[in-house]
Design a protein around this nucleic acid. Structure first.
Lengths: 236, 236
DNA sequence: TAATTCTACTTGTTATTACAAGTTAATTAT
DNA sequence: ATAATTAACTTGTAATAACAAGTAGAATTA
């Protein structure tokens, strides 16, 4: 009777999942707001709140008089999607491989972002991955997660799963926003070998900080992208 | 009595302007929702709608129990701000210089984005600029604007003004969203000379399409960034 | 004094109601 | 048949109400 998770969020998650899973495809029209009201026993403000969230996340576009049309890709936040790299390129053709499996270690001394005291004191879950798109290595990413209240996280199997989806579904940690720095660099020997490039090839470098719904709990990534074959694509 | 512009939008524009103009500064707390209701003779749903828009645009952040706190910068759309490059770096230290002043010409044959028939038939306002940050050339951007209903546009002085601000304030054209492709490339001789780089230096290349409130009216940019000295920074 | 409780705020969620405005297709009139 | 009108949808805007939940400071208590 006392849902800790609000109704609009439940509906948002449901429709979101249906879009991601392909129940609704690009260009499809969602059931009308009134239909959704009847089916889920909700009122229009609640349904509209859920749809507004979907619009904000870029899953649908609404047209007055017509309906809610499913968009091709989640609206990007920054370059890639807020759901992480997986949903930016579509999970079908993505495979990920650990260079360094998740392990707890202290934060680096000159970290790329300013850390809070809570984050500093609680240590860091560190991991390195390579992500393949159509069997070609596209992303080499280094991830830093504060070791705060994440039981059994390091032993969890993250292969081929979006880090963000796991945090979202298992730990109720949701990304609310963040900041990023982007630059073009020349591949070092290490990066070149991971991304199957020649040393000195142009590589995209992103440093990203993701703020979450948990105060003082942020995620950090340093991502190197091979953009020779394809560009990083994003909606906004 | 029949406001063509909805109340929530009027309030949104008002507060937005107050934030941009510095009436409310970073960290300031806006008047509470109930106060805004009283002052503007509106109800909470309407006021909340306006505040929701401000949250989405990144002007404020809301904290349950505390209030609405003014954010440092408008939430970025894509990498740079929705207001264009100017507000991404702050207009104080930015100076722009035309390589090719705005002129009407046909669209290029193999354009970077798919064009609508209306856009194709109406020709293209073309311009090339270099933008300096602290007297160093950072951006070299090529812009394409459909030549639809923009009286006296080519004769307008755009130096040191954001293209988006002019379109917004003079022509009521507002950017609603868009798409972008990003990659790292090596500077060609031309790009290197514009950005004061050596040929072969790493350069960020963005191809962006901006959708506006006018149907079938999109803006297009191809931007080359020198990210050797500083990164491109964005909030999201 | 220090810790606790309480109270008065803040935003968050949800239901109800009503009408406006844009879209589409069936119906009607020409 | 074609054009115009209408009707039946769709989403958009807005007021009203009530309670939940988080925050901060005042008041109380130990």
């Amino acid at each position: 009777m006392k849902p800790r998770i609000p109704q609009y969020k439940i509906l948002y998650e449901l429709i979101r999942k249906q879009i991601v899973d392909g129940v609704y495809k690009e260009g499809d029209i969602l059931p009308s707001e009134n239909d959704l009201c009847k089916v889920h026993s909700l009122t229009r403000p609640t349904v509209r709140h859920a749809l507004d969230s979907l619009v904000n996340q870029g899953f649908i576009k609404k047209h007055q008089g017509k309906g809610s049309i499913v968009h091709k890709l989640p609206k990007g936040v920054g370059i890639l999607s807020i759901s992480g790299t997986t949903s930016a390129l579509g999970s079908k053709n993505l495979r990920s491989e650990f260079i360094i499996k998740p392990k707890v270690q202290p934060w680096e001394d000159d970290f790329i972002f300013q850390l809070s005291e809570l984050e500093l004191s609680s240590g860091c879950i560190y991991m390195e991955r390579i992500r393949f798109f159509n069997e070609a290595p596209i992303f080499y990413d280094v991830n830093y997660i504060p070791n705060i209240n994440l039981p059994r996280f390091t032993s969890r199997n993250l292969e081929n799963k979006s880090l963000f989806d796991v945090l979202r579904s298992v730990y109720q940690i949701e990304v609310k926003g963040g900041e990023q720095r982007i630059k073009a660099i020349l591949a070092t020997k290490t990066i070149a070998s991971y991304l199957h490039l020649k040393e000195g090839a142009p590589v995209l470098h992103l440093e990203r900080k993701f703020e979450t719904n948990k105060p003082a709990f942020n995620l950090y990534s340093s991502i190197y992208c091979n953009t020779n074959e394809q560009s990083i694509y994003g909606l906004f």
